[in-house]
Simulated scan of single mutants.
Amino acid sequence: MVEQYYTTQLSAGLGLREETKGLFELWQPGMNTQQLCDVALESGSFPNVTARRLRNIVAECFFPRYLRNEGVAQQVKELLPILSTSEMSQVFYLYTARANFILAEFVKDVYWQKYASGYQSIHVDDSKAFVELGLQDGKMKKSWSDTTIKRVSSYILGCLVDYGFLEVHNRSERRLIPPRISDHIAVYLAYELHFSGLGDNAVINHPDWQLFGLNPDDVREELKALAVNRHWIIQAAGDVVQISWAYKNMEEVINVVA
């Protein structure tokens, strides 16, 4: 497994929901980042974004989230027109967390732990302490200054505000408003993991589910509930799970979600 490090990449853009949606409307299969930048600049769809800023969004945000792995952008582009606003946010959140290890770790180790412990909010100092701990544990390739630590701490919280996981309460606190993973996104994620080559138990135990606060037991129950809609047949005996998958490819999955 490739070792992952915390980076400052969130400084290039947080949730970027509307910008991402706009870029997907323009992106076509085969486009690289430069071509997408050129099309976006010529389109007039981003009148309040400078050319430099738009290039930064495409190269530092859109590319690592959706173009680094083959097939992702095409799937998301086909999915977006049929999703609700909240479901769209969950898809963007999933790929942003995958591309930003620091965000994924914060959600798993701090956000959901706070929620499970009965807290109603997260303090900005919680985020700062998390980043500082990461520095102590060697999760950055090089040391970060206090200013960088403070900025990245705020970016993490800001990103979760953008995706509807937090609400600004006051200057120092963000209220927890954890969304439940939608049925459509659960089906999409399960099949995406399945078609990536994972076995049934590996799908159930994949860390991506933790981004939505689900442990393996939760995932099993979620998939059992969704089996009623004939997305799959699931049999579980103890920790061993066997799934008979109903769809042959992601195109079929997206058609069913629609």
Rank of each mutant, 00 (worst) to 15 (best):
V2G: 11
Q4M: 11
T7K: 01
T8Q: 15
T8I: 10
L10T: 03
S11L: 15
L14H: 10
E18R: 15
E19C: 03
T20C: 05
K21Q: 15
K21T: 14
F24D: 01
E25D: 13
L26P: 08
L26M: 03
W27F: 05
Q28N: 11
P29I: 00
P29T: 03
G30D: 08
N32M: 03
Q34E: 10
D38F: 12
A40P: 05
L41G: 09
P47T: 02
V49D: 04
T50A: 08
R52A: 14
R53H: 13
C61W: 04
F62E: 05
F63I: 04
R65E: 11
L67N: 06
N69A: 12
E70H: 10
Q74Y: 08
K77D: 11
L83I: 07
E87F: 02
S89C: 13
V91R: 00
Y93S: 01
T96S: 14
A99K: 00
N100L: 08
A104N: 05
Y111E: 03
Y111L: 09
W112S: 05
Q113L: 02
Q120M: 12
H123W: 11
D125M: 10
A129Q: 12
F130E: 04
V131C: 09
L133Y: 14
G134Y: 02
G138A: 07
K139Y: 11
S143L: 14
T147L: 13
L157A: 02
C159E: 07
L160I: 07
D162K: 07
G164W: 02
F165N: 00
E167A: 13
R171M: 15
S172T: 15
R174Y: 09
R180Q: 14
I181P: 00
I181N: 00
D183P: 04
Y188R: 02
L189I: 02
L189T: 00
A190P: 00
G197T: 02
L198R: 07
D200F: 02
N201K: 10
A202L: 10
P207I: 06
D208Q: 13
D208I: 06
Q210Y: 08
L211S: 06
D217K: 15
D218I: 05
V219H: 01
L223F: 07
L226I: 07
R230I: 11
I234L: 12
A236L: 09
D239V: 09
V241L: 06
V241T: 11
Q242D: 13
A246P: 14
N249R: 05
M250L: 04
E251S: 15
I254R: 05
V257Q: 08
A258W: 11
A258D: 08
